[in-house]
Design a protein around this nucleic acid. Structure first.
Lengths: 344, 344
DNA sequence: TTGAAAGCGCTAACAT
DNA sequence: ATGTTAGCGCTTTCAA
C-alpha cells in the first residue's frame, strides 16, 4: 500500500519478462515456466502489486459489478433484502453499486443510466412504480427491454413483467389471511390497502376479498381504506377507521408501514390490539414479536429474497438464453391474538 | 439504448471531426465552434451516445465512486445512516459501492482491497472492530494509514483515530442518561453494556458511572452486565438480571440491540416497562414510540450522520490538506416512563 | 478552432 | 514458454 502504485509494466521490468507473461500468471492463462511464475509472484508479493480494476475492466469490456436499485432502503423490508444480497455478493466476489430511488422514477432512470455506462453484470431492481401504470413508466419499460443487461425484479411485480424475478404470492397469502381471521371468529373485516396503482396492492386486496367470499362474507366498500403503503397515510386512515361507531372485528394491513400506521392510531385511541380489535398484517415486525404484542401476519423471509435475487442474476449471466425464472418465495403465517376481540 | 453501443470514435466519424473535438464538447473543455458543437450534440442525442465510464475512469485515473463499508446494514441504525449517504450521493452525483462486513475483519480487509483497486474517491467506514485492540487490527490500521484515499469514520471511534469522522458524544450522553434516571427518582441502577473491546462501549459505561457518582451514587460491579451490543447476549443477561430477588429501579442499555434484548426478557418475565422497572436506552426505536411504550433514550439522528459523513468526505477530497474534521452529532434525550417504578 | 498522437494499465491474438 | 502488438474508449498535450 505504501509508496507509489506499481503497475504491470513495473512488475514485468523487474522480473525481466514481458507484460504478457505477468498477465498470464495473474490470470492463470497460457503457459508459464514454474520458475518464471515464482519469480513474478515473488515480486508481486514484495511490492504488494494490485492490478488496476479500471484497466482490467476496460480491456475486458466487462466488470464484476452488480447494480442494486431499491426504492427505500430505510425500510427494514428492503434493508433485509439488501443484507441478503450483500452476503451472496461476498460469496461470488461481486461488487455492489447501490442506488436508493426513494420511489422516484427520475432517480431510477438516472441509476440505469449510470449502471449502463459502467457495463455492470446485471441489475437487481425493486421498481419504484408499476411501470405499465403511467406514460413515463411505459417509456422506461420499453427502453429497459432493449437493454441487454440482465435484470432481476424484486418484490414488486407488474403486468407482463418480462424479467427474472423474486416474488411473493400476494393473492394467495391475502386469501389465507382472510381465512385465518375468519377461523379465529372474526366476521366484520376492514382492510388498509397499499397504493392501488400497484399490482401487488390490487392482488392483496383481491385475494383478501376472495378469501372472505369463500367464507361466505362480503368485503364492504366502506371497509376498504385506500392507502399508499406509507405509515402516515395509514395512520390517518386508521384514525378514521377507529372513530367509527361500529368497529370491525379485525383489520388487515398491507405491509409493515401500514401496520405501523394502524398501531400508531391504536395507541393514540388508547386501544389495545387483540382486545379492542384483531390485527393481521403483511410482513413481520420483529420488534412486535419481541414485545409479545398479539399481532398476526403473513410474511416471507426477506433476507432469503435478497439472496435468491442475486443467485438468479448469476444464473442468468451464465445462461443468457435459458427460460425465464420466477422464484416465488413461500409465505408463512404467524398467528397471535387474531381471535375475535373479547371486549365489546 | 437499442442496437449497438456507440463510441466516441463513431460520433467523431459521423460528425466528420476528430475524437478530440467530441471529447471537448462533452467536457466543455477547450474551444469548439458553435456550429461544430451543435452538430456533435445532435448526433450524440440521436444515437443516445453515452461515454463509457470504464474508459473515462482509466483515462483520468479517477472515478466518481465512494466506497461504503458498514458492519451490519440489517441494523436500522446503519440502514438509516446508509439512507443518508445515498441521498447526498445522489446530490453529488457519486456512485456508492457497498460492503457489509458483518463485523468481520477479514471481510473488511477484502473490501479495502477491492476499493483500492478501483481508485475510489474515498471511503466511508463503520469499523467492524476497535483496531487498536487486536494485533490484526493494528496491522490493518497501519496499512490504512499509508493509504492515500480519504477515509471518514462513522460512529465507532477508537483510540488515536487518525481520520475525519462523524461521531457521537458517548461519554456525555451516558452521563446525561444517568442524571435523568436519577432525577426521575431512581436510585439503584443497572447497565447492560456493549462490547468492552470497543471504546464506545467503555465511554458509555464510564459516562454513566460518572453520572451516577455526581449524583452521589455508586455503580456496583454486580449491576454491570457485560454484553456485546447484540440482542441475543443482552437477552440472556437481562434474564439473569430480572431473576434477581432485588430488582434495580432502572436499567441503562447501550444500543438498540441491547434494548431489544432487554425487552424480550421483560416480555418473557411478564414484566412491564415503567411499572416493574424503568428503562433508558441508547438509540431510538421507532416502533416503541409508535406503540407508546414508555421507553426513555438518548439518541442521535442517524440519517443526518450519514449525510454528514459523505459531506465530510467531499470536503476532504476538495481540500486534502485541511485540518482534520471531527463532526460530533448532538445527542437528544427522550423521556418517557423513566420515573422510579410504581409497583414494589 | 481543430487534429494527431501518445497514454491510461491491462488483455488476447498471433508470432516465435 | 515467452514476446510483440494491437486494441479497449476515452483524455490530454502539442502542433498546426
Amino acid at each position: 500500500m505504501a509508496g507509489r502504485v506499481i503497475t504491470i509494466k513495473d512488475v514485468a521490468e523487474m522480473a525481466g519478462v514481458s507484460k504478457a507473461t505477468v498477465s498470464r500468471v495473474m490470470n492463470n492463462s497460457g503457459y508459464v515456466a514454474a520458475e518464471t511464475r515464482r519469480k513474478i509472484e515473488n515480486i508481486m508479493e514484495t511490492y504488494d502489486y494490485m492490478p488496476s480494476t479500471l484497466a482490467v475492466n476496460l480491456s475486458k469490456q466487462e466488470t464484476k459489478v452488480v447494480g442494486v436499485v431499491l426504492p427505500e432502503i430505510e425500510n427494514t423490508f428492503y434493508s433485509d433484502i439488501l443484507h441478503g444480497i450483500t452476503q451472496v455478493a461476498d460469496e461470488l466476489d461481486l461488487s455492489l453499486v447501490l442506488f436508493d430511488t426513494q420511489n422516484n422514477l427520475e432517480r431510477e432512470k438516472k441509476a440505469f443510466r449510470v449502471l449502463q455506462q459502467q457495463k455492470v453484470r446485471g441489475i437487481i431492481l425493486g421498481p419504484s412504480v408499476d411501470y405499465p401504470e403511467t406514460e413515463e413508466g411505459r417509456e422506461l419499460l420499453a427502453r429497459l427491454k432493449e437493454y441487454s443487461v440482465p435484470i432481476v425484479i424484486i418484490d414488486r411485480d407488474f403486468a407482463n413483467m418480462p424479467w427474472d424475478a423474486v416474488l411473493y404470492e400476494n393473492y394467495q397469502c391475502s386469501y389465507q389471511a382472510a381465512l385465518e381471521l375468519y377461523k379465529a371468529g372474526n366476521r366484520k373485516m376492514a382492510v388498509i390497502t397499499g397504493d392501488m396503482d400497484m399490482k401487488i396492492s390490487r392482488d392483496r386486496l383481491e385475494g383478501f376479498r376472495k378469501g372472505l367470499e369463500d367464507c361466505g362474507l362480503t368485503l364492504q366498500e366502506e371497509d376498504i381504506y385506500y392507502g399508499d403503503f406509507l405509515i402516515k397515510r395509514s395512520y390517518e386512515l386508521s384514525m378514521e377507521l377507529l372513530s367509527r361507531k361500529e368497529l370491525p372485528d379485525a383489520v388487515y394491513t398491507s405491509n409493515n408501514q401500514t401496520t405501523l400506521g394502524f398501531l400508531k392510531a391504536m395507541n393514540e385511541k388508547r386501544m389495545v390490539i387483540g382486545e379492542d380489535i384483531a390485527l393481521m398484517g403483511n410482513d413481520r415486525i420483529e420488534t412486535l414479536d419481541i414485545l409479545g404484542i398479539p399481532f398476526s401476519c403473513v410474511y416471507r423471509d426477506n433476507y432469503e429474497m435478497g439472496r435468491m435475487a442475486l443467485r438468479l442474476l448469476q444464473e442468468r449471466v451464465k445462461h443468457p438464453k435459458k427460460a425465464r425464472n420466477i422464484c416465488m418465495i413461500p409465505y408463512q403465517v404467524k398467528l397471535k391474538g387474531s381471535e375475535k376481540r373479547k371486549k365489546k
